[in-house]
Every structure is written in C-alpha cells, then in structure tokens.
C-alpha cells in the first residue's frame, strides 16, 4: 500500500498518470458530456485528441520542471533506467520499443491508404427546386409521391419490393440496413434506411431526387462522385422509382417527412 502511495507521490508517475487521465478524458470523457444536456453525442475525432494531448503533454512537462526539486525527482527514474546496471533489460526494451513505435507511427502516417482524402462533405445536401428527369422537368418543391393517390398501395409495394430486390439489394441489403454484399467495398458506405437519420428525415421528393440522379448528381458540397450510387433515371422509370420509395418507407416503418413541416425552413 505504501509502495503504491510512494509511486503516486513521485513526480514521474504523477506525470504519467496525469497523461493517462487526460487521454481518457479527451477520448471518452468529452463524449459523455452532451448526453447530460440531452444532446446527441459523438466520439472525439483523432485529430482533436492528438492536438489536446500535445497541449496536455506540454502542460505536464511545465509542471514537473517549474520546481527544481520536482524536476530532479522527475528525471530520476529516466536517469536510472538509462544508467543503472540492474535495469539493463528495461533499458534494452525501452531503447528498442521507442524507436520501433516512432518508426511504426511514421510508417502508418506515410503509407498509401485506400481511403479517399478527407473532404468536408455534407451528407444531406440541399436539393434543387426542380430536376430534369429524362428530358421532363419535375418540380421537386412541394412534390408528393403520385402513386399514393393512384392505384392500389399493396400493388405499389409489391412492385417496389421487386425493384428493390432486383436493383438495390446488393448494396443496401436485405434488411435495408446498408449492409448488402457489396456494401463494404464502398466509401462512403451505402446508407442504412433503418437509421433514423436517413429517409426518416427526408421528403419522398428528396429521396426521388437522390435515386434518380445518384452520386454523380450530387451538388458540390456533397462531393460528387464520392458516392457510388448509380444514376437510376437511366434504368428505371419514374413510376418504378416512386414505387420503390413507397416500399422503402413501408418496409422500414418510417413516415416520410411532409411538406407542411418543412416548407417553413429553407435552411436547417
């Protein structure tokens, strides 16, 4: 017990402990804060954690070296490890591991990766007010799914289901969760319709636009060509797309966002 106490009081181990605590705070602690206020939370990006840790390291070094005695005691374990005969093995391990670690980090930073360069990409870019679908101009603003007022809903769902299984399944998956067979080959990965952040937040006309125009039709802020979504207007008719949209909502259980709610706010 006293041994542990001596360790905790020693500046060197205090510094190590502080750094570990800081890391835990930055990596996990910060992400725990927003839920306290009932907000949505997310892990802290690595770039920020690295930045914070650098600052914390500088702070800790300043702390241990601002007092003469503390600084001398802080250096003791380092000095001992590098000099003492009975610490030969520790020394050897440190001298091998530290360069290896630096080498690995350098390698990891510089090796070519498959990942696309980081771009600032908006996931739900603002839709245009109208699009040209196979030469026909379609006004998206205020547009509702025409099939909802025409024919029988069960039939549309059947058509949609058939089209989904013929075309969409490979990427968006059997359970509409974006986990199709090919899904892992893409970046960004296909959207999960089960997630409450996708079609649940969108009007059917927005979904129609995204299906019809696909990845190439994304505006600049959506980083065109990053998405592998094909341009479906080349393969499907207007009604087929509307049918598959009905199927998506029917199967996932979400309700499409309606125009009454969304016309008020052009910006979000």
């Amino acid at each position: 017990m006293s041994r542990v106490g001596a360790w905790v009081r020693h500046p060197f181990w205090q510094a190590v402990l502080l750094l570990i605590l800081a890391y835990l705070l930055f990596k996990f602690g910060i992400a725990l804060l927003p839920p306290l206020l009932g907000m949505h939370s997310a892990p802290v990006p690595t770039s920020v954690v690295v930045q914070y840790m650098l600052i914390a390291l500088v702070g800790v070094l300043i702390h241990v070296s601002s007092d003469e005695t503390r600084w001398r005691r802080f250096k003791e374990p380092i000095h001992d490890t590098m000099v003492d005969a009975d610490k030969r093995w520790v020394r050897l391990a440190v001298l091998i591991l530290v360069p290896l670690l630096i080498g690995w980090v350098t390698y990891d930073q510089t090796r070519p990766k498959v990942e696309a360069p980081i771009t600032l990409r908006s996931i739900h870019p603002a839709p245009p007010s109208q699009i040209t679908f196979r030469g026909k101009t379609i006004q998206l603003t205020g547009l509702e799914n025409p099939l909802r007022h025409r024919g029988s809903l069960t039939e549309h769902i059947e058509t949609g289901k058939r089209i989904y299984y013929q075309n969409c399944l490979a990427c968006h998956g059997d359970r509409l969760d974006g986990q199709g067979h090919f899904a892992h080959g893409f970046s960004p990965t296909p959207l999960s319709f089960a997630d409450q952040g996708t079609i649940a937040q969108l009007t059917e006309s927005f979904v129609f636009w995204r299906v019809a125009k696909g990845g190439p039709g994304l505006p600049r802020e959506g980083a065109p060509w990053s998405s592998a979504m094909p341009v479906w207007e080349d393969y499907l008719t207007e009604d087929e797309i509307w049918a598959v949209i009905i199927y998506l909502y029917e199967q996932s259980g979400w309700k499409p966002r309606t125009w009454e709610e969304s016309t008020g706010g052009g910006e979000h």
Binding site: S129, T141, G142, T263
Partner: peptide
C-alpha cells in the same frame, strides 16, 4: 441569402 439552395420555398 443562400443562392444555390431553396430559400423559404421560393426555390433557388
């Protein structure tokens, strides 16, 4: 005003 997006339902 944002010019490339729909604003207040008036279109781009």
């Amino acid at each position: 005003p944002n010019l490339v997006t729909d604003q207040g339902g008036e279109g781009t």
